[in-house]
Design a protein around this nucleic acid. Structure first.
Length: 470
RNA sequence: GCUCCCUUCGUCUAGUGGUUAGGACGCCGGCCUCUCACGUCGGUAACAGGGGUUCGAGCCCCCUAGGGAGCGCCA
């Protein structure tokens, strides 16, 4: 039997990291076993499903490279099929019509809570034969007595007594099918062999298994993976604050970093931290996933992102970076080759956005000095070295990193200073801040004209400051 | 309230009866160094609590506490 897994999000919000990890696990499991990965959009909640959410999901999956072999299938396009199954169940007496009012149901719930028991439907309409031409819902006739047992690939054996389950609604008054019915029908029809989903579905599973049994079918294997908690400890789920994957892209995260981070949440392979997609496919196993939920930690994600930025091909980084530079009103075509800039900054940024921000000065004169940097380095004592550097740079030919390094070293020696005493004022003059790549590379990439212009500006600044101080 | 699930450094985790409880992120310190960063070396820090079982428990059992989920004409 070939493995078939699926990811079945409901388009009622954006795609968050919890969903992505579930998708990743499903995808990895399918890939590992040479099976198929199916994408299914569970949009039966007409009120809350939106086209934007569908787009966000598809976009997120594409960005991450989690390619699906089949789909996306939309449940709203399968209503006929669900109706067919419900009618069959109805015909076989495995489901029944119910016209209990919401008020009655609410009363039942209230009373149950008051009695300190679990709220359950009382089966009022089980044998009432509610006529089909009057408003009604359809309920599944859950087996009485006994219990449902299943061996979860992550959680182990789980057993729930049928007495805990009630007759759930499978068709609403408006005729639309409900979640527990559609999931079951789809997983069966799409021949899903392994259902990998969040552990918030554990409690639904026995109901679904009962429906499957009523349909005379064999249930798939289940793997309920724990949820992810947010940085603040609050849980990440569709119903609570969670960060969209699209936001991570906009923050300059690399998909491989996010995926690597996510796969290590609840899963590990010895002491290993770095996994390429191929390595994940080779080493991942759903049975190695932990049962406990884990907390999302942005610092570690950022560390991984920096790792991948460092390791990646500068050309690819440059390609991604150019878009971000554009958002900062910089045209990377006018100035140093962006690939060279990337090579210079590759070890200095945790995100692509950060890299863009610290690279703007290569293309455009900065507005103001960083106050701290100016205060510390653009002082009267620096005047001598700045003017000497200015003269030196003006006559420098060719404008290479090697020659620039030599020029700085020469000035330092002439003045009997160490490199830092010369390089730092110069750096602040050219960069506007006290941090940048090596001074030689920095000067080289900024270019002769801009360097001279900025050094002149710094000399003026220091003179003015000296005058003000009297 | 009821049912189900979970519990090793702050965080992610290794660990499957005998370990100085290991690694990673973060944090702190050293080195490298023109700054920042990278790299590198070292340090900080954990078995939720209580009972058992056993010659011996992080590992097995029970209880308590804490956390999560479900209990919808949501998915």
């Amino acid at each position: 039997m070939t493995v078939r897994t699926r990811f079945a999000p409901s388009p009622t919000g954006y795609l968050h990291v919890g969903g992505v990890r579930t998708a990743l696990f499903s995808w990895l499991f399918a890939r590992k076993h040479g099976g198929a990965f199916v994408l299914r959009i569970e949009d039966t909640d007409l009120e809350r499903s939106t086209a934007e959410s569908v787009n966000a999901i598809l976009e997120g999956m594409t960005w991450l490279g989690l390619e699906y072999d089949e789909g996306p299938f939309y449940q709203t396009k399968r209503f006929d099929r669900y109706a067919e199954v419900i009618d069959q169940l109805l015909g076989a007496g495995l489901a029944y019509r119910c016209d209990c009012s919401r008020e009655r149901l609410d009363g039942l719930r209230e009373q149950a809570m008051k009695d300190k028991t679990k709220p359950r439907y009382d089966g009022h309409c089980r044998s009432r034969n509610v006529p089909a031409d009057e408003p009604h819902v359809v309920r599944f006739r859950n087996p009485e007595g006994g219990s449902v047992v299943f061996d979860d690939l992550v959680q182990g054996r789980i057993a729930i007594s049928n007495d805990e389950l009630d007759d759930l609604i499978i068709r609403r008054t408006d005729g639309s099918p409900t979640y527990n019915l559609t999931v079951v029908v789809d997983d069966l029809d799409m021949e899903i062999t392994h259902v990998i989903r969040g552990d918030d579905h554990i409690n639904n599973t026995p109901r679904q298994i009962n429906i499957i049994a009523a349909m005379g079918k064999i249930p798939p294997r289940y793997a309920h993976v724990p949820m992810i908690l947010g940085d603040d400890g609050a849980r990440l789920s569709k119903r609570h604050g969670a960060v969209s994957v699209v936001e991570y892209r906009e923050k300059g995260l690399l998909p491989e970093a996010l995926l690597n981070y996510l796969v290590r949440l609840g899963w590990s392979h010895g002491d290993r931290e770095i996994f390429s997609l191929d390595e994940m496919i080779e080493l991942f196993d759903i049975e190695d996933v932990n049962k406990a939920s884990s907390t999302f930690n942005t610092d570690k994600l950022l560390w991984l992102n920096q790792h991948y930025i460092k390791e990646d091909d500068p050309k690819r980084i440059a390609h991604l970076l150019s878009y971000l530079m554009g958002k900062l009103d910089v045209d990377p075509a006018k100035g140093p080759d962006l690939v060279d800039v990337v090579k210079a900054q590759q070890e200095r940024a945790k995100t692509l956005v950060e890299m863009a921000e610290i690279s703007v000065f290569f293309y455009r004169d900065f507005d103001e000095y960083d106050p701290q940097a100016a205060k510390k380095h653009l002082r009267p004592v620096a005047l001598e070295s700045l003017t000497r550097m200015r003269d030196r740079l003006a006559g420098l030919e060719p404008w290479t990193a090697e020659a620039l390094h030599q020029a700085v070293a020469d000035v330092a020696e002439e003045l009997g200073l160490n490199m830092g005493k010369v390089a730092q004022p110069l750096r602040v003059a050219v960069v506007g801040r006290a941090a940048s790549p090596g001074i030689d590379i920095t000067l080289h990439l900024v270019g002769k004209q801009a360097c001279l212009r900025r050094v002149d500006r710094a000399i003026d600044y220091v003179r003015q400051r000296a005058e003000q101080q009297g």
